[in-house]
Every structure is written in C-alpha cells, then in structure tokens.
Simulated assay, not measured.
Amino acid sequence: MTRYVVVGAGAVGSALGGLLAQQGVDVLLVARGEHARAMAAGGVTLRCPDTTVTVPVPVVTAAEDAYLTVDDVLVLTTKTQDAEAAVTGWADVPVHGPDGTVGRVADLLPMLVALNGVTGEEIALRYVERVYGLCVWFPTVMVEPGEVIVRGTPRRGVFHVGRFGASTDPSADTALFDGLVRDWEPAGCLVRCPDAVMEWKYRKLLANLGNVLEALLGDASGAKDVRRAAQAEARAVFDAAGIAVVGDEESRAGWQPDGLSFESVPGEPPGLGSSSWQSLARGTGTIETDFLNGEVVRIGRRVGVPAPVNARLTGLARRAAREGMEPGAFDVDELRARVLT
C-alpha cells in the first residue's frame, strides 16, 4: 500500500494529507512547531465551505523519525525558499525493504514537487533521481495551528503531474500516476497527467504574480493594472526565452472542471488568501516572491528582457517580510507610484 509522506505540511500539505487520510489512504505529515504539535495531539481540522471535519493523522517533525519503505512517495509542500534545505535533509535518508535497508531516497523514491514557481523541480533534481512536477490548483489557508481552510467545493482541487527530467523507467511513472488517480480522486483531489507539466507550472506562475499584491495591499482589487503589467512583462520574458505556457482557454478548462468551485468558508472573511499573504500574516520573516515575480526577473536578465515591475515588487516584498509588516501595509496609490513609475 502506497504511503504519501508530505514534507513541509503547512496549509497545502496538511489539507492534502487530511483529505487523503479521511479516505483511508496511508499518509505521514512532516511538520514543525505548534502546527505539528497540534496535529499530533488532535489531528488536522479541515474547514471547507460545505463541512468541517477533524481527521487523525500521523505526524513527525524530522526525517530521522520517518521509517521509509519502498512503498513511500514523498510530496514536497514547503515554500520554495525552504525547498533546498528540505530536499537535502531527505535525499540520504535510508529506504527499507523486507530484508533491511535497500538504498536512499535519492536513488529510489519518487518526489512530487508541489511548490509554487518553477525552480523547485530543478532544486530537487540536483539530489533526487525521480522528480515529478505537481502543479497545484488548491486554495488553502492555515492560520491557526492544526486547522486548515480548504475553499474548494464539492471537489477540493486539481493537480497536474508529470515527470521532470528524463525517465529511465516509463512503466514506473505510469504506475505512480495510476496510483495518484486511485488514491487522490476519491478525496476530491482531481489528478491530471499532461505530457508537459511544466507548461502548466509556468501558467500557474503567471497567476501567482498577483500573490505579492494580496500580501502588500490586503485587498488587491484596486491594483489590477499592476497585476496586468507584471503579467505582461512575464509573457514577454517567456516569449523571448522560448518558454511554452498553457494557453488561457486550456487553463480555464483544466482548472474549472465540473464539480469544483472556490467558495468562502463560514465564519472566515473572503480575503484570506495566497501563500504570500499567509507568510506576512504569520510573520515568518520570509516570503516566496523571489521565486515568483523574481523568477521572471531572473529569466529576463538571462535573455536580455527587462522586468522592472516584477523587480520592484520583489524588493517591496522582501522589505515587508524583513520588517514584519502585516498584509495591507501599503496603500494602493503608494504601491502604484513605487512600481509603475
């Protein structure tokens, strides 16, 4: 029986693990701090638009506490800025078979990279043989330890998955994908297996360029011009770099299947938002904008296409995280003046 070991179980990882565990799928959540202690003591509470449920889940706080076997699949759900530390911490962990240790994670186990942005897969591939991109369309928020808001209803989200890098065993990839469909879809997590998963992740990156606006402004509805400018820069950069991106119509069809809509959760304001918003709300001191808007800037510099709007947004985001600002610290007119001029 496959077990899904969710590394970096914050909002996305805890929600996914809880939904799978509710259906009897074997999971192990790897978390830290108060969130890990709360889940270990009382399970993970999933608050959805249509239901609230608390699910018992096994939890560990370190790689050495997880006894890994050949039936395990690692699902990386950290923030991108924490990915390298997480991957290096797991790459050399021993994997066990019926007769003892048979190798390391790096050589044997699949790792699904369920991160925003497009750099997590490259980070993982430096250390792990079997790397798979996982494009996550799954709005979740973790505000209180042990409690996660899941906004999808009645289905919960869509996950596009594909091999990253060359495969030496396509049959193993197919078996993994079939297992994901079998285990995840009963939990409301729809699995799609496109030929080019990174085209989906670059399309998701375009959507995520607005995360920083939610974080800095709180309510980003008045900054649509800034969002459009950031996305226009990104499209110009991707075109110059020869990067393929899923088209608008295909993405709408892929992310809006029958039975999936995103609604408010009773008792919570509708403005609870992106992972960047959550980072400022929790005062983590870091924010992943450098791997979202900053990725556009990096690629643009490589191909000679400036991306000043995205560069300025990354600078403001770093400042907000460094100085402990809360979401909504900037006024929209002030932001527009700083970014668009």
Results as ranks from 00 to 15, higher is better:
G89W: 08
G120K: 10
T286A: 13
L209I: 07
R192G: 06
W255I: 01
D99C: 04
L20I: 06
R192V: 15
G328P: 11
D173M: 04
R151V: 01
K204C: 02
V60H: 07
F238D: 00
I243N: 02
D219T: 04
L29F: 09
C193Y: 12
G179F: 02
V59C: 07
G283A: 09
A207G: 05
G179A: 06
S251G: 00
R104W: 09
V95R: 11
G103I: 02
D331K: 11
G152P: 10
R163V: 04
G324W: 15
D239N: 09
P186Q: 12
M142N: 14
L16F: 02
V197Q: 11
T284A: 01
E326Y: 08
A232M: 02
V131D: 04
A220W: 05
G89L: 05
R252K: 10
P94H: 11
A320K: 10
A337F: 10
P327H: 11
A207K: 03
V95C: 07
D195H: 15
T80C: 09
R301I: 05
V27S: 05
K201D: 02
T153K: 05
I149Y: 12
P154V: 05
D258P: 03
A307I: 01
G133R: 03
S14N: 07
T61D: 10
P139K: 11
A66C: 13
T286D: 14
R235Q: 12
E34A: 15
V105C: 07
T54P: 11
A307K: 09
R318T: 03
D331W: 08
A253Y: 00
C189Q: 15
W184V: 02
R126N: 13
V95E: 04
R301E: 15
L335E: 07
S167R: 06
A9C: 10
T80I: 07
G42V: 00
P327Q: 05
T52H: 10
T140I: 12
V44G: 06
A241L: 02
D331F: 12
V309N: 08
Y132L: 08
A11K: 03
A66I: 03
A232Q: 11
A11E: 04
L313S: 01
L206K: 08
D290G: 14
N208D: 11
E268F: 15
L115P: 03
H96F: 15
R252G: 00
V303M: 09
V25C: 01
M111C: 12
L112G: 09
D71Y: 00
V181Q: 10
E84Q: 13
L28Q: 13
R322G: 12
V197T: 07
P170S: 02
L217N: 13
R336P: 03
P58Y: 12
F291L: 11
A62K: 11
G242L: 03
K224S: 10
V332S: 15
T2Q: 06
G328C: 12
G24A: 03
V128N: 07
E34G: 12
G218N: 06
G152E: 09
D219F: 08
W90S: 08
P194K: 14
G120Y: 05
R298D: 06
A124E: 09
G254M: 01
T45Q: 14
A91Q: 14
R104G: 01
D169R: 15
A83R: 08
V226Y: 05
V7W: 04
P308T: 02
E288L: 13
G157A: 02
D219N: 15
M111D: 04
F262N: 02
V303W: 13
V148R: 13
L213G: 04
T78E: 03
V53M: 06
V6S: 06
G165Y: 02
S276Q: 11
V161G: 01
S276C: 14
